[in-house]
Design a protein around this nucleic acid. Structure first.
Lengths: 215, 215
DNA sequence: GTCGTTGGTCAACGCCCGTTGGCAAACATG
DNA sequence: CATGTTTGCCAACGGGCGTTGACCAACGAC
């Protein structure tokens, strides 16, 4: 989950910590529990919330540290720098279902329902969207999510896999537009829609983008 | 155009300038030409570009002034503060056509075509989108554009004007999602689409959101 | 008990930001 | 030419930022 911690530059992780215990062949835990795990988790929680509500620049390390109840220098020790913190705090997993197993006529509804649920239970998605709009590096991170998670799923659903990138991208325009207007801009008429209304309206759109013949 | 210059706080415009010439009943020009108009325009141009490419926080007054070839203090004198500069630089006019005169079956294609053209010839739209995603005040500004420009246009096009807010909002999710992925995130498969392809794919979507019966 | 390791605080550095006020040149007006 | 206004530059301010390194307390192994 912390695999790609170096995100914009390659300079981060000066204070990276290796696990202490050299595997005494005891329990099968690959990394031992550290005494500071609670603090680390508190930092990540605070960071996720700040990044989601304030965006990258306005989410200061000092504010995140204060939210977590510790000193700003702890953030630096555990995550190297601000970029490392963002990389550690925001590791999006869309939990894409197996689209091959979904009845073809339900694809649109299933996708919209899935994304609505993901977005409302995981504030990392809003954080990533905000930073993606603010930052070139954030935009590249979003491209990575599209490439590594959405595209493979689309390939299993599209009739012609060669069309998968375009079709997945079209669906993404609709789904990200919904997220932007509803969770970031808070456009009143969008925020007022119920989930069922959104699925009823957007489902056919995504359905068409995914499987309808090229217009 | 500079009407609502005070944007976030009410503190701006300390150095607001009134026109000097007290209307000598000469030419019908309401405000006389100032010697500094070229500089003012250069500042606004540089500000629009910086806000569009860097977003609000990273677009510094110092960088904008350097781009315009003048001293940062000039920006303060002419536009009060950073918020005043943004308000002056970004005054979006979507130039909405009279949708009542558009054949009902062409509504979707006309709207998508119009937005594509607007977006590609006016970098203020990208600037506003970036700031809207970064900033609560920016988001409110986008809400204002929706309320004052999109909604009135939608009322003349929707069969039932009572449904206009929801229908205009749905169309906005699709159009802003396109702008976000194409002009901000630069998602490769979206950037690769031609304008005609976009119109062919998104036109029916917007058409349905605007006039199709409630699902 | 002793001592290395870990968790955590504190004070500060250097930088860049928005912003301010003073001053010099260019201009306009009589 | 003399005077007031506009245009512009310069140097600085106060503050917040990311970041660093010294220092202390608690813990764990032997």
């Amino acid at each position: 989950m912390l695999a790609n911690a170096c995100w914009l530059t390659l300079a981060g992780m000066h204070h990276s910590q290796a696990p202490r215990t050299p595997e005494p062949s005891g329990p099968p835990a690959p990394t031992a529990a550290r005494r500071s795990d609670a603090t680390r988790a508190a930092i990540l929680d605070a960071a996720r919330e700040r990044f989601a509500t304030d965006g990258y620049e306005r989410a200061t390390i000092r504010a995140i540290a204060k939210d977590a109840g510790i000193d700003p220098s702890m953030v630096m020790r555990y995550y190297g720098n601000k970029e490392g913190l963002f990389a550690a705090a925001v590791s999006v997993d869309l939990r894409m279902p197996d689209l091959g197993a979904v009845p073809r006529d339900d694809l649109g509804r299933v996708l919209v329902t899935h994304f609505l649920a993901q977005w409302e239970e995981n504030e990392q998605l809003t954080a990533l969207l905000r930073v993606g709009a603010a930052n070139r590096a954030g935009a590249e991170r979003m491209q990575g999510v599209f490439r590594d998670q959405l595209l493979p799923a689309a390939r299993t659903a599209c009739p012609d896999p060669e069309q998968a990138p375009a079709r997945a991208a079209l669906a993404t325009t609709q789904l990200l537009g919904l997220a932007l207007t509803r969770y970031v801009l808070h456009l009143p008429p969008v925020a007022a829609l119920t989930r069922d209304e959104i699925v009823a309206w957007l489902g056919p759109t995504v359905q068409r983008y995914m499987v309808a013949p090229h217009p």
